Computed example of a mutant assay.
Amino acid sequence: MTREFNVVDEMLAPYRVTSPYGPRKDPFTGAPVFHTGVDLVKGHLSPIHAFTEGTVTHAKMGVAGTGYGGFGVVVAVQDRNGATHLYAHLHDAAVRVGQRVKRGDVVGRQGSTGRSTGSHLHYEVRRKGYGTHTDPIAYLREYYPVVKAPVAAAELAEKAEVAVMEAIKDWQLQLADKAIDSLAAKAVLNNAEEWKARLRSEPEKVRDDMAWLVFVLTDRATNTKR
């Protein structure tokens, strides 16, 4: 038995979602706006790890006209698909432009720079630059397909136990065959081949008949000695 495993759930586990992707009220004005990313919270100054591998294209305070204005300190990473991942409102950046990062590398620390109401990570994915934002969590699930996790140790042990029981069953059948042949040779048991066939086709029924069989064989053996 296999178990499904998704790396996205593992990466998001340390975070608490405080504002999902989609329509919401502007936290400053109360007006309806569209939230272009997802707000994630661990703890102030906590390390922020890259969700994908890629190349750093921005690692400083965002300014108006760059597509990063109002986001404070931003680290932007372009992944293998050409999509840009924004890690915004950081306290500081831990990478530089042109640097290659791997999934799990620290890109900065959680902060509250820029247009922010409190310490958090604004994580955004732009498929083809500014204005092409997409649901970042859905994108990550698309980026990392579900895989089959290795079989757990308990499941392996269960399989091993089944294999052992099958081996024991074969050994028991071989022993039973020898016993039947021995009884047939002494003319204590008739239809030896029929009994062997029954042991394989209906072992549970043969087991239920064992008490009766032992009685009959004992009676025959006793009568033979008279």
Score class of each variant (00 low, 15 high):
Glu10Arg: 09
Met11Gln: 11
Ala13Thr: 07
Pro14Asp: 12
Tyr15Ile: 03
Arg16Ala: 08
Val17Leu: 07
Val17Met: 10
Thr18Gln: 02
Pro20Leu: 04
Tyr21Phe: 15
Tyr21Leu: 03
Gly22Thr: 07
Pro23Val: 10
Pro23Met: 10
Lys25Cys: 08
Pro27Thr: 04
Phe28Glu: 06
Gly30Gln: 10
Val33Glu: 06
Gly37Asp: 03
Leu40His: 01
Val41Thr: 02
Val41Trp: 00
Gly43Ala: 13
Gly43His: 08
His44Thr: 10
His44Glu: 01
Pro47His: 09
His49Phe: 09
Ala50Glu: 02
Phe51Gly: 03
Thr52Ala: 04
Lys60Cys: 09
Val63Trp: 08
Val63Gln: 09
Ala64Asn: 08
Ala64Leu: 05
Gly67Val: 02
Phe71Asn: 10
Val75Trp: 00
Val75Gly: 02
Val77Trp: 02
Val77Thr: 09
Gln78Ile: 06
Asp79Val: 02
Arg80Met: 07
Asn81Cys: 04
Asn81Pro: 01
Gly82Asn: 05
His85Trp: 00
His89Tyr: 06
His91Ile: 01
Ala93Phe: 08
Arg96Trp: 07
Arg96Tyr: 08
Gln99Arg: 08
Asp105Met: 08
Val106His: 02
Val107Lys: 03
Ser112Pro: 02
Thr113Glu: 06
Gly114Tyr: 00
Gly114Pro: 04
Arg115Leu: 12
Leu121Tyr: 03
Glu124Gly: 03
Glu124Leu: 02
Val125Glu: 01
Tyr130Arg: 02
Tyr130Trp: 13
Gly131Ala: 01
Gly131Arg: 02
His133Ser: 12
His133Pro: 01
Thr134Leu: 03
Pro136Lys: 00
Ile137Thr: 06
Ile137Pro: 06
Ile137Trp: 04
Tyr139Thr: 00
Leu140Ala: 10
Arg141Gln: 09
Arg141Phe: 07
Glu142Val: 03
Tyr144Pro: 05
Pro145Arg: 07
Pro145Gln: 08
Val146Met: 12
Val146Ser: 03
Val147Gly: 06
Lys148Tyr: 12
Lys148Arg: 14
Ala149Trp: 13
Pro150Gly: 07
Glu155Tyr: 08
Leu156His: 14
Glu158Asn: 12
Glu158Met: 13
Lys159Ser: 13
Ala160Val: 11
Val162Pro: 01
Met165Ala: 14
Glu166Phe: 12
Lys169Glu: 14
Asp170Gly: 08
Trp171Asp: 12
Ala176Asp: 11
Lys178Asn: 11
Ala179Thr: 15
Ala179Leu: 15
Ile180Gln: 09
Ile180Phe: 14
Ile180Gly: 12
Ser182Asn: 15
Ala185Trp: 15
Asn190Ala: 15
Asn191Ala: 03
Trp195His: 15
Ala197Tyr: 15
Arg198Gly: 01
Arg198His: 11
Arg200Met: 13
Glu204Arg: 09
Glu204Pro: 01
Arg207Asn: 14
Trp212Ile: 15
Trp212Glu: 14
Leu213Thr: 14
Thr218His: 11
Thr218Leu: 04
Thr218Ser: 13
Ala221Leu: 12
Thr222Ala: 14
Asn223Pro: 08
